[in-house]
Design a protein around this nucleic acid. Structure first.
Length: 460
RNA sequence: GACCCUAUCGUCUAGCGGUUAGGACACCGCCCUUUCACGGCGGGUGCACGGGUUCGAUUCCCGUUAGGGUCGCCA
């Protein structure tokens, strides 16, 4: 029997929560904690609650809460109980609210008074301290196993810890436990950074005379170099993935793969399927490093199978964020243009390279060198290509391809000699969508215009 | 300093005493091709180290090392 197979079937319906502090920032690790809680609730048919731990007035604002709500909604993590907006005083959804700690002061005062009255806590220099047991506390953990936590040397000097500051504000350990108790939380799924603190929480639950919830401490997400991911690190904020053009389903899928596996050599797994496969004991115990390249690949996988409509929606969104006024172009043109980028794009910010040229009046080169390179091409050859294009009867991908190949054959050159400068001339970039399809979408007029521009420039 | 957790390719992982240690990303090579990209095929790289236990350890135990976490009138 391994140490972590400790869970017996529990009659109580599962109630889990994500309890972030509104810092104006949703950490990617926090997002994964929320995801794992959500997965467990959905897997067990339980309830997922969102609780805002805004006891620290200094870092508390409505906007900061909205960041969390927006991030969770973007990932597709809906909560059964919790706030509806960032407004702490507004009513939330659920029977055990308020779901903002700033609104629960009475509960905390009541609980603290009880602890003091029953000898579990006492006032000391204006603050209230909890009488912490001196003996080691055993933490049964669904992922880590049985952990015996002894006091550290510092704690031995003063084992009792503050639960209410001298200014009257209750402290995290107290409010966290009181809320979990009052909200009927059955499983606490949180980052491993809380494992050591759990001894305090268990002691508090016992003082209140109730059994602590089940615990599941999940490993942390580290930077790719193994250092801890702090707020400052690139990619630490969930918001950055929204801005960098990732699809939420890809990010959620990738997060699932960190510390958990669907087995069977699979990587692409939809959230509904993860819901059915997910369970706590299978979570890995070691930290994972965040590999942006794999997320990038995974995002590409999702884009490949994405409907044209959804791709269109997200691509246009990305273009507009980059300042392209796609609305100024005919809808059919935008649709066709964006479509040519779909097979090549792995991230929505990349539509800039694959579709921006459709929406620019002036040719813009990726680099100055490319401009020089284009102006150095054989004008005679390019002129013949222009003439052939002008003579094509019906302008489409097939006919422009045929025309280009005919010119190449006639001139006895490899088609690459035409293709490369042509691509540069119409898009300003050496990489892009299927060239002939791009020509078709762009329209003959614009193609000839851009070729003329090159032909009229002084040779490099 | 003390306490706690962890350790399979560069990265994410499968493996739960006997395997040619599997997959994916990344990387390299080849093919396809619209000299790019996309796609296809192929390739290399791994059980941190040292002791046990065992007929046999990647797998179990102990230690070392390394990484991470915690010890706050922050959450």
């Amino acid at each position: 029997m391994t140490t972590n197979s400790v869970s017996l079937p529990d009659a109580r319906p599962v109630r889990v929560r994500f309890a972030p502090s509104p810092t104006g920032f949703l950490h990617i690790g926090g997002a994964r904690t929320a995801l794992f809680n959500w997965l467990y609730a959905r897997h067990t048919g339980g309830t997922f609650l969102l609780r805002i731990e805004d006891t620290d007035a200094a870092r508390n604002s409505q906007e900061a809460v909205e960041v969390i709500l927006t991030g969770l909604r973007w990932l597709g993590l809906d909560w059964d109980e919790g706030p509806l907006t960032g407004d702490a005083s507004a009513p939330g959804k659920g029977a055990v609210g308020p779901y903002f700690q700033s609104q629960r002061g009475d509960r905390y005062r009541e609980r603290v008074a009880w602890l003091v009255a029953n000898g579990h806590a006492y006032e000391h220099e204006g603050a209230i301290r909890f009488r912490m047991p001196r003996d080691p506390i055993v933490i049964p953990d669904l992922v880590v196993g049985k952990v015996t936590r002894e006091l550290t040397d510092r704690e031995k000097l003063e084992p009792d810890f503050v639960i209410v500051r001298s200014d009257g504000q209750p402290v995290f350990h107290l409010v966290n436990v009181v809320d979990d108790l009052d909200m009927g939380i059955t499983h606490v799924i949180r980052g491993e950074d809380h494992l050591s603190n759990t001894a305090k929480h268990i002691a508090l639950f016992r003082a209140f005379g109730v059994a602590p919830p089940e615990y599941a401490h999940i490993p942390l997400i580290l930077n790719i170099d193994g250092s801890k991911m702090s707020k400052r690190d690139k990619g630490a904020s969930l918001l950055s993935y929204i801005e960098e053009g990732f699809a939420p389903e890809a990010v959620a899928n990738y997060l699932c793969l960190l510390g958990w596996s669907p087995k069977g050599n699979r990587e692409v797994v939809s959230l509904p399927e993860v819901v059915s496969l997910f369970d706590l004991p299978q979570i890995l115990r070691h930290n994972a490093r965040f590999d942006l390249k794999k997320l990038h690949w995974l995002n590409g996988e999702y884009i490949k199978t994405m409907s044209g409509e959804r791709f269109h929606e997200l691509a246009v969104q990305a273009l507009q964020r980059m300042g392209f006024n796609t609305a100024a172009f005919p809808a059919a043109y935008v649709k066709a243009a964006v479509e040519t980028a779909k097979p090549k794009v792995k991230q929505f910010t990349e539509v800039r390279h694959f579709a921006a040229f459709y929406f620019r009046d002036e040719l813009e080169f990726d680099t100055a060198e490319l401009r020089t390179e284009l102006l150095a091409t054989d004008r005679v050859l390019l002129g013949r290509l222009r003439a052939a294009f002008a003579a094509v009867a019906a302008w489409d991908a097939k006919s422009s391809e045929a025309a280009l190949k005919a010119v190449a054959t006639e001139a006895a050159v490899k088609i690459g000699l035409l293709v490369h400068p042509l691509r540069l001339a119409v898009s300003g970039s050496p990489v892009g969508p299927s060239l002939y399809h791009a020509l078709e979408v762009l329209g003959r007029e614009k193609v000839l215009q851009r070729l003329d521009w090159v032909l009229n420039q002084a040779p490099a």
